[in-house]
Write a protein that binds this DNA or RNA. Sequence first.
DNA 1: ATTTTAATGCGACTATGTTGCAATAATACA
DNA 2: TGTATTATTGCAACATAGTCGCATTAAAAT
Lengths: 128, 128
Amino acid sequence: MKRRKTQSKSEILAALKTSGGALSHDMLQSTLGTTIDRATIYRVLNRFCEDGMVHRIIGDDGKQYFAICENCGEKKEMHTHNHVHFRCMKCGKVECLKSTPEIDLPKGYQAKMFNMVISGVCGDCTLI
Amino acid sequence: MKRRKTQSKSEILAALKTSGGALSHDMLQSTLGTTIDRATIYRVLNRFCEDGMVHRIIGDDGKQYFAICENCGEKKEMHTHNHVHFRCMKCGKVECLKSTPEIDLPKGYQAKMFNMVISGVCGDCTLI
DNA sequence: ATTTTAATGCGACTATGTTGCAATAATACA
DNA sequence: TGTATTATTGCAACATAGTCGCATTAAAAT
């Protein structure tokens, strides 16, 4: 299954790049206008994740957010996405933080995925 | 709005206690049998959270899990639930870990809630 | 230019969670 | 103990997030 270069793909990738942070499906939907179908957006994002270009964060609102992988280690190594994310409860922005805490698991436990989200008020919104 | 002691409440609390870990709505539903209505379970759990007896975890499956608060600090101090949780991808068990990592936020950022979930394979399931 | 098949759009579907409202039952009070 | 008050429940309807099947479209290979 070779991947093809399509309009939707480029637009979504561009939107993620310019945002700098993590976007949910509906954020993308409104950024892109209603040109691209809901299902397509999800499918493109899932493909990006499979290919390791993007990582998925589950917000504490239960929604999926997607962010471009930068210095997140090599492809497909999901477990290297062990950095913490911050979600602003006012403006909705989701971003990657630098911290990658070391967490010691009980004996015999194997970690496959990390999903850490702190939510609160971001720097911009505190000022307001 | 004073709280009343009801059957549902007691049963749900008991189920959470005996489980020892965190349960999702559907785990509770099947533990309790179909006696209690879906909406009621959710309402009871939300009330427990408000009252600080229980804390809510959003799993990396996007679902809500609820666990009894033990040594989680005082009532209503949501931000003291800064311990990490582990979800087993095989048996589905969700439990609280001891680690409470220190995460330094950028300047001006305020943390309100922590939601940290590591998923992988738990001790019991590794043996199988 | 033609063929192949990945990707899209549409609709239907599932699952999770919430809410409005009438009925029920736990507490308070006489 | 009997009655009034109102928190809680059950039911149905709703909202939202995300997935999937299928026919159509459009990249890429020939």
